[in-house]
């Protein structure tokens, strides 16, 4: 890369986990050599936030990263965050909404008035920043996986195409469901309903509210912290990448007439029931034994 691109990270109503999560990227030190931060809430930066608040009208960045839920009334040192976002959004070449809050509003949108993502309030498209819709890319997740942030910034700096879906999420990471790659997949395929917490075995779709089959994400393919994922260890996916996060009753499966109310992404009830019927017609012993049991 010829010239270092200038990145700017601006936090709105946030918990700072997206910023911390980035620090867990296995090649962060190398990434840091190719980019400069005008400001990042943890990493060494060219400016202080104080300087930016005082002089933002004379400043620019290449890629603007927005973290946290936008809040109409939020200001810092008397500077309205909305005005500052708008200023940088105009001149930058790309905007990334990092995390579910900045993308859809997320958890904190329920904590007060006038809170939302940059372009979405849940699933609803907003007008406020629509001039910048075409230069925006959504990177939901609570927090967003650090690999996604690093790969997308790198791809943008190098040019080339980045296929996006209707929420403007890069398909390389959000064109899958969290279910892809889960170590509990066989229990799902063969419709074994039983799952006990604290066990390696079982799928959490049937009883414990796992949203992996209909949540966009690649947690089980790229793995968290290079080693694991919620569903692999035995925690249901709560759908933290989705516009409706957090739903209610996060640890149980809502059912209608004994059938999970939400079915895998794009799968019709008829297709689901037919496959389930076939799978349930067989009893496969292996799925009813503990994996770590000693064998004769």
């Amino acid at each position: 890369m010829a010239e270092k691109k200038l990145l700017l990270w601006l936090s709105q109503l946030a918990c700072n986990a997206n910023a911390h999560s980035l620090l867990n990227h296995p090649s962060l030190e190398e990434f840091q050599k190719s980019f400069d931060w005008l400001y990042h809430p943890l990493l060494p930066s060219l400016s202080s936030l104080d300087e930016i608040l005082d002089n933002y009208e004379e400043m620019e960045c290449d890629i603007l990263l927005i973290d946290g839920a936008l809040c109409a009334g939020l200001s810092k040192k008397g500077v309205r965050m909305r005005d500052m976002l708008e200023h940088f959004a105009k001149s930058c070449s790309h905007i990334l909404t990092v995390g579910t809050c900045a993308t859809y509003g997320g958890i904190f949108s329920a904590g007060g008035e006038d809170r939302s993502g940059l372009h979405f309030d849940g699933e609803k498209r907003l007008d406020g920043f629509s001039d910048f819709f075409e230069k925006s890319i959504s990177l939901p997740g609570c927090p967003v996986h650090p690999e996604i942030v690093v790969s997308v910034i790198t791809a943008l700096a190098q040019g080339g195409s980045l296929p996006l879906d209707s929420y403007r999420r890069p398909k390389e990471y959000y064109g899958y469901t969290v279910h892809d790659g889960c170590s509990r997949n066989e229990y799902f395929e063969y419709k074994i309903d039983r799952h006990d917490f604290g066990h390696l075995e079982g799928c959490m779709f049937y009883e414990h509210g796992c949203r992996g089959t209909y949540s966009a994400g690649s947690c089980n393919m790229i793995l968290w912290n290079g080693v694991s994922s919620k569903t692999r260890v035995g925690e249901p996916c709560h759908g933290c990448t989705e516009a409706d996060f957090p739903t209610r009753g996060l640890w149980r499966t809502e059912k209608h007439m004994g059938i999970p109310a939400r079915l895998p992404l794009g799968v019709s009830k008829r297709a689901y029931l037919s496959l389930a019927g076939v799978a349930k017609a067989f009893r496969i012993d292996r799925f009813h034994r503990r994996i770590l049991e000693d064998e004769e």
Binding site: A17, N24, F197, H199, V227, S228, V233, E235, W251
Partner: peptide
């Protein structure tokens, strides 16, 4: 990553629930 080995990911997991932990 050590937390994630036990709890699935870090930051933001919920692997401790009343009665113990979800992992084995």
């Amino acid at each position: 990553s050590m937390i994630a080995v036990v709890a699935g990911q870090y930051p933001h997991n919920s692997y401790a629930i009343p009665g113990g932990v979800v992992c084995e």
